[in-house]
Design a protein around this nucleic acid. Structure first.
Lengths: 137, 137
DNA sequence: CTAAATGCAAAGCATTTGCAAATAT
DNA sequence: ATATTTGCAAATGCTTTGCATTTAG
Protein backbone atom coordinates (compact mmCIF):
# COMPACT_ATOMS: atom_id res chain seq x y z
CA UNK A 1 0.00 0.00 0.00
CA UNK A 2 1.15 3.51 -0.51
CA UNK A 3 1.09 4.86 2.96
CA UNK A 4 4.45 6.46 2.28
CA UNK A 5 3.06 8.93 -0.20
CA UNK A 6 0.07 9.62 2.01
CA UNK A 7 2.31 10.48 4.94
CA UNK A 8 4.61 12.63 2.81
CA UNK A 9 1.64 14.44 1.37
CA UNK A 10 0.88 15.73 4.84
CA UNK A 11 4.56 16.39 5.61
CA UNK A 12 4.59 13.64 8.20
CA UNK A 13 7.80 11.68 8.57
CA UNK A 14 7.69 8.11 7.37
CA UNK A 15 8.64 6.15 10.47
CA UNK A 16 8.45 2.38 10.81
CA UNK A 17 5.98 2.79 13.66
CA UNK A 18 3.63 4.83 11.48
CA UNK A 19 3.86 2.39 8.63
CA UNK A 20 3.03 -0.47 10.94
CA UNK A 21 0.11 1.41 12.48
CA UNK A 22 -1.32 2.07 9.03
CA UNK A 23 -0.69 -1.48 7.95
CA UNK A 24 -2.44 -2.96 10.97
CA UNK A 25 -5.40 -0.64 10.54
CA UNK A 26 -5.58 -1.58 6.89
CA UNK A 27 -5.50 -5.27 7.71
CA UNK A 28 -8.05 -5.11 10.48
CA UNK A 29 -10.31 -2.53 8.90
CA UNK A 30 -11.27 -1.07 12.28
CA UNK A 31 -9.34 -1.27 15.50
CA UNK A 32 -9.27 0.24 18.95
CA UNK A 33 -6.21 1.64 20.71
CA UNK A 34 -5.66 -1.34 22.98
CA UNK A 35 -5.77 -3.96 20.26
CA UNK A 36 -3.53 -1.78 18.13
CA UNK A 37 -1.06 -1.49 21.00
CA UNK A 38 -0.97 -5.25 21.49
CA UNK A 39 -0.37 -5.89 17.81
CA UNK A 40 2.30 -3.19 17.52
CA UNK A 41 4.23 -4.66 20.43
CA UNK A 42 4.98 -7.74 18.33
CA UNK A 43 7.12 -5.70 15.98
CA UNK A 44 8.09 -2.90 18.39
CA UNK A 45 8.38 -4.31 21.89
CA UNK A 46 9.19 -0.90 23.37
CA UNK A 47 6.54 1.14 21.59
CA UNK A 48 4.61 3.30 24.00
CA UNK A 49 0.97 4.21 24.15
CA UNK A 50 2.05 7.84 23.98
CA UNK A 51 3.50 7.25 20.54
CA UNK A 52 0.34 5.53 19.42
CA UNK A 53 -1.92 8.28 20.69
CA UNK A 54 0.27 10.97 19.16
CA UNK A 55 0.27 9.25 15.82
CA UNK A 56 -3.40 8.44 15.80
CA UNK A 57 -4.15 12.03 16.67
CA UNK A 58 -1.93 13.59 14.03
CA UNK A 59 -3.16 11.18 11.40
CA UNK A 60 -6.77 11.88 12.34
CA UNK A 61 -6.04 15.62 12.22
CA UNK A 62 -4.67 15.14 8.72
CA UNK A 63 -7.69 13.06 7.76
CA UNK A 64 -5.55 10.05 6.97
CA UNK A 65 -7.46 8.21 9.65
CA UNK A 66 -11.01 8.52 10.91
CA UNK A 67 -12.40 7.90 14.34
CA UNK A 68 -15.51 5.76 14.58
CA UNK A 69 -17.77 6.14 17.60
CA UNK A 70 -19.98 3.17 18.26
CA UNK A 71 -22.48 2.93 21.12
CA UNK A 72 -21.11 0.94 24.08
CA UNK A 73 -17.74 0.41 22.42
CA UNK A 74 -14.30 1.93 22.57
CA UNK A 75 -13.52 4.27 19.71
CA UNK A 76 -12.30 2.55 16.59
CA UNK A 77 -9.96 3.90 13.96
CA UNK A 78 -10.00 3.22 10.24
CA UNK A 79 -8.26 4.48 7.14
CA UNK A 80 -10.23 7.37 5.72
CA UNK A 81 -12.21 6.14 2.75
CA UNK A 82 -15.27 7.12 0.78
CA UNK A 83 -18.37 7.79 2.84
CA UNK A 84 -19.88 4.65 4.27
CA UNK A 85 -22.16 3.24 6.90
CA UNK A 86 -20.93 1.06 9.76
CA UNK A 87 -22.59 -2.14 10.77
CA UNK A 88 -21.68 -3.76 14.05
CA UNK A 89 -22.62 -7.23 15.16
CA UNK A 90 -23.72 -7.22 18.78
CA UNK A 91 -22.77 -10.91 19.13
CA UNK A 92 -19.24 -11.00 17.74
CA UNK A 93 -18.39 -7.27 17.61
CA UNK A 94 -17.40 -7.55 13.99
CA UNK A 95 -17.66 -4.23 12.15
CA UNK A 96 -18.44 -4.05 8.44
CA UNK A 97 -18.54 -1.12 6.10
CA UNK A 98 -21.35 -0.70 3.67
CA UNK A 99 -21.45 1.79 0.86
CA UNK A 100 -24.89 3.09 0.18
CA UNK A 101 -26.12 6.28 -1.34
CA UNK A 102 -27.82 8.30 1.37
CA UNK A 103 -28.36 11.54 -0.55
CA UNK A 104 -32.05 10.81 -0.38
CA UNK A 105 -32.07 10.68 3.39
CA UNK A 106 -29.81 13.70 3.53
CA UNK A 107 -32.16 15.86 1.43
CA UNK A 108 -35.10 14.81 3.55
CA UNK A 109 -33.20 15.89 6.63
CA UNK A 110 -32.22 19.20 5.11
CA UNK A 111 -35.80 19.86 4.09
CA UNK A 112 -37.23 18.96 7.44
CA UNK A 113 -34.65 20.76 9.56
CA UNK A 114 -33.33 23.63 7.43
CA UNK A 115 -29.82 22.53 8.36
CA UNK A 116 -27.09 22.55 5.75
CA UNK A 117 -25.77 19.02 6.21
CA UNK A 118 -22.02 18.56 5.92
CA UNK A 119 -21.19 15.18 7.33
CA UNK A 120 -22.70 12.09 8.88
CA UNK A 121 -21.99 9.19 11.13
CA UNK A 122 -24.27 6.25 10.67
CA UNK A 123 -24.00 3.05 12.65
CA UNK A 124 -26.43 0.19 12.49
CA UNK A 125 -26.18 -2.68 14.90
CA UNK A 126 -27.58 -6.14 14.64
CA UNK A 127 -26.53 -9.71 14.02
CA UNK A 128 -24.11 -10.57 11.27
CA UNK A 129 -24.79 -13.42 8.84
CA UNK A 130 -22.30 -15.77 10.51
CA UNK A 131 -23.83 -15.28 13.95
CA UNK A 132 -27.34 -15.65 12.54
CA UNK A 133 -26.30 -18.96 11.07
CA UNK A 134 -24.74 -20.15 14.31
CA UNK A 135 -27.89 -19.18 16.17
CA UNK A 136 -29.97 -21.53 14.06
CA UNK A 137 -27.82 -24.57 14.60
CA UNK B 1 -43.74 14.95 33.79
CA UNK B 2 -44.17 11.50 35.15
CA UNK B 3 -40.67 10.57 35.99
CA UNK B 4 -41.94 9.15 39.24
CA UNK B 5 -43.82 6.34 37.59
CA UNK B 6 -40.96 5.67 35.22
CA UNK B 7 -38.54 5.30 38.10
CA UNK B 8 -40.92 3.09 40.07
CA UNK B 9 -41.52 0.95 37.03
CA UNK B 10 -37.86 -0.02 37.15
CA UNK B 11 -37.87 -0.34 40.94
CA UNK B 12 -35.60 2.65 41.28
CA UNK B 13 -36.12 4.85 44.30
CA UNK B 14 -37.58 8.26 43.63
CA UNK B 15 -34.94 10.59 45.02
CA UNK B 16 -34.89 14.36 44.56
CA UNK B 17 -31.54 14.06 42.79
CA UNK B 18 -32.95 11.66 40.24
CA UNK B 19 -35.99 13.80 39.63
CA UNK B 20 -33.81 16.83 39.07
CA UNK B 21 -31.51 14.93 36.71
CA UNK B 22 -34.48 13.82 34.66
CA UNK B 23 -35.99 17.27 34.72
CA UNK B 24 -32.80 18.93 33.52
CA UNK B 25 -32.34 16.38 30.76
CA UNK B 26 -35.94 16.91 29.73
CA UNK B 27 -35.47 20.67 29.64
CA UNK B 28 -32.19 20.62 27.75
CA UNK B 29 -33.02 17.73 25.47
CA UNK B 30 -29.40 16.58 25.39
CA UNK B 31 -26.72 17.25 27.94
CA UNK B 32 -23.24 16.08 28.86
CA UNK B 33 -22.09 15.11 32.34
CA UNK B 34 -20.26 18.35 33.08
CA UNK B 35 -23.10 20.64 32.17
CA UNK B 36 -25.48 18.42 34.08
CA UNK B 37 -23.21 18.60 37.12
CA UNK B 38 -23.08 22.39 36.98
CA UNK B 39 -26.84 22.68 36.72
CA UNK B 40 -27.49 20.16 39.49
CA UNK B 41 -25.23 22.06 41.86
CA UNK B 42 -27.69 24.94 41.85
CA UNK B 43 -30.27 22.83 43.63
CA UNK B 44 -27.89 20.37 45.33
CA UNK B 45 -24.67 22.17 46.22
CA UNK B 46 -23.12 19.00 47.64
CA UNK B 47 -24.10 16.59 44.89
CA UNK B 48 -21.15 14.55 43.73
CA UNK B 49 -20.12 13.41 40.30
CA UNK B 50 -20.19 9.86 41.63
CA UNK B 51 -23.92 10.20 42.28
CA UNK B 52 -24.46 11.57 38.81
CA UNK B 53 -22.49 8.82 37.12
CA UNK B 54 -24.21 6.15 39.16
CA UNK B 55 -27.62 7.51 38.30
CA UNK B 56 -26.89 8.05 34.65
CA UNK B 57 -25.58 4.52 34.43
CA UNK B 58 -28.49 2.87 36.18
CA UNK B 59 -30.99 4.91 34.20
CA UNK B 60 -29.22 4.05 30.95
CA UNK B 61 -29.17 0.38 31.96
CA UNK B 62 -32.91 0.59 32.51
CA UNK B 63 -33.37 2.35 29.18
CA UNK B 64 -34.88 5.38 30.84
CA UNK B 65 -32.01 7.38 29.37
CA UNK B 66 -29.98 6.94 26.21
CA UNK B 67 -26.39 7.81 25.53
CA UNK B 68 -25.65 9.73 22.36
CA UNK B 69 -22.17 9.49 20.85
CA UNK B 70 -21.29 12.34 18.56
CA UNK B 71 -17.98 12.70 16.73
CA UNK B 72 -15.57 15.06 18.51
CA UNK B 73 -17.98 15.68 21.38
CA UNK B 74 -18.45 14.42 24.89
CA UNK B 75 -21.22 11.87 25.25
CA UNK B 76 -24.67 13.35 25.62
CA UNK B 77 -27.64 11.91 27.47
CA UNK B 78 -31.29 12.19 26.59
CA UNK B 79 -34.59 10.76 27.72
CA UNK B 80 -35.28 7.60 25.76
CA UNK B 81 -37.84 8.40 23.11
CA UNK B 82 -39.01 7.03 19.80
CA UNK B 83 -36.28 6.36 17.27
CA UNK B 84 -34.82 9.51 15.82
CA UNK B 85 -31.86 11.01 14.04
CA UNK B 86 -29.52 13.53 15.64
CA UNK B 87 -28.43 16.68 13.94
CA UNK B 88 -25.58 18.68 15.38
CA UNK B 89 -24.56 22.17 14.39
CA UNK B 90 -20.80 22.44 14.10
CA UNK B 91 -20.97 26.21 14.74
CA UNK B 92 -23.10 26.41 17.87
CA UNK B 93 -23.12 22.75 19.01
CA UNK B 94 -26.89 22.74 19.18
CA UNK B 95 -28.35 19.26 18.85
CA UNK B 96 -31.76 18.64 17.30
CA UNK B 97 -33.80 15.52 16.98
CA UNK B 98 -35.49 14.65 13.77
CA UNK B 99 -37.99 11.89 13.30
CA UNK B 100 -37.81 10.28 9.93
CA UNK B 101 -38.75 6.89 8.70
CA UNK B 102 -35.59 5.02 7.83
CA UNK B 103 -37.08 1.58 7.21
CA UNK B 104 -36.14 2.04 3.58
CA UNK B 105 -32.49 2.52 4.37
CA UNK B 106 -32.62 -0.27 6.88
CA UNK B 107 -33.99 -2.80 4.36
CA UNK B 108 -31.33 -1.80 1.87
CA UNK B 109 -28.69 -2.42 4.47
CA UNK B 110 -30.13 -5.78 5.43
CA UNK B 111 -30.28 -6.81 1.80
CA UNK B 112 -26.77 -5.71 1.05
CA UNK B 113 -25.16 -7.10 4.18
CA UNK B 114 -27.30 -10.04 5.30
CA UNK B 115 -27.27 -8.60 8.79
CA UNK B 116 -30.43 -8.65 10.88
CA UNK B 117 -30.53 -5.00 11.91
CA UNK B 118 -31.68 -4.27 15.44
CA UNK B 119 -30.75 -0.71 16.22
CA UNK B 120 -29.14 2.38 14.79
CA UNK B 121 -27.31 5.52 15.70
CA UNK B 122 -27.50 8.22 13.08
CA UNK B 123 -25.88 11.61 13.48
CA UNK B 124 -25.71 14.25 10.81
CA UNK B 125 -23.64 17.35 11.30
CA UNK B 126 -23.86 20.66 9.56
CA UNK B 127 -24.99 24.22 10.10
CA UNK B 128 -28.26 24.99 11.79
CA UNK B 129 -30.71 27.52 10.32
CA UNK B 130 -29.82 30.21 12.87
CA UNK B 131 -26.10 29.95 12.18
CA UNK B 132 -26.73 29.91 8.45
CA UNK B 133 -28.65 33.14 8.84
CA UNK B 134 -25.94 34.76 10.93
CA UNK B 135 -23.34 33.73 8.37
CA UNK B 136 -25.10 35.70 5.67
CA UNK B 137 -25.31 38.94 7.59
C1' DC C 1 22.26 19.54 10.38
C1' DT C 2 17.61 20.34 12.13
C1' DA C 3 13.08 19.52 12.85
C1' DA C 4 10.10 15.90 13.97
C1' DA C 5 9.20 11.56 16.24
C1' DT C 6 9.95 8.16 19.86
C1' DG C 7 9.56 6.38 24.49
C1' DC C 8 9.67 7.08 29.19
C1' DA C 9 7.72 9.09 33.33
C1' DA C 10 4.60 12.14 35.18
C1' DA C 11 0.49 14.77 34.90
C1' DG C 12 -4.30 15.39 33.81
C1' DC C 13 -9.07 14.13 33.16
C1' DA C 14 -12.98 11.05 33.31
C1' DT C 15 -15.18 7.44 35.47
C1' DT C 16 -15.71 3.87 38.97
C1' DT C 17 -15.43 1.81 43.54
C1' DG C 18 -15.74 1.26 48.67
C1' DC C 19 -17.81 2.71 52.50
C1' DA C 20 -20.26 5.18 56.23
C1' DA C 21 -24.24 8.00 56.78
C1' DA C 22 -28.73 9.29 55.12
C1' DT C 23 -33.07 8.29 52.91
C1' DA C 24 -37.02 5.96 50.42
C1' DT C 25 -40.25 2.52 50.76
C1' DA D 1 -36.70 -2.20 59.28
C1' DT D 2 -34.21 -2.82 55.27
C1' DA D 3 -32.31 -2.13 51.08
C1' DT D 4 -31.01 1.55 48.24
C1' DT D 5 -28.91 5.86 47.47
C1' DT D 6 -25.95 9.62 48.51
C1' DG D 7 -21.54 11.90 48.86
C1' DC D 8 -16.95 11.69 50.08
C1' DA D 9 -12.31 9.98 49.25
C1' DA D 10 -9.54 6.93 46.99
C1' DA D 11 -8.65 4.10 43.11
C1' DT D 12 -8.68 3.07 38.33
C1' DG D 13 -8.34 3.88 33.53
C1' DC D 14 -7.61 6.48 29.50
C1' DT D 15 -5.24 10.18 27.21
C1' DT D 16 -1.99 13.94 27.06
C1' DT D 17 2.25 16.41 28.15
C1' DG D 18 7.26 17.38 28.96
C1' DC D 19 11.56 16.18 28.00
C1' DA D 20 15.84 13.83 26.72
C1' DT D 21 17.27 10.84 23.05
C1' DT D 22 16.90 9.11 18.51
C1' DT D 23 15.79 9.34 13.71
C1' DA D 24 14.10 10.98 9.04
C1' DG D 25 14.84 14.03 5.51
Amino acid sequence: MNYIESLQQYKLKVTPQRLEILDIIYQYGHINIDDLYNLLQKKFPTISLATIYKNINTMCDNLLLSEVKIPNKKNLYELTKTEHIHLICTKCDNVSDIELDISDLQSKIELKSDYKVIDNSIVFSGICPQCLKENNE
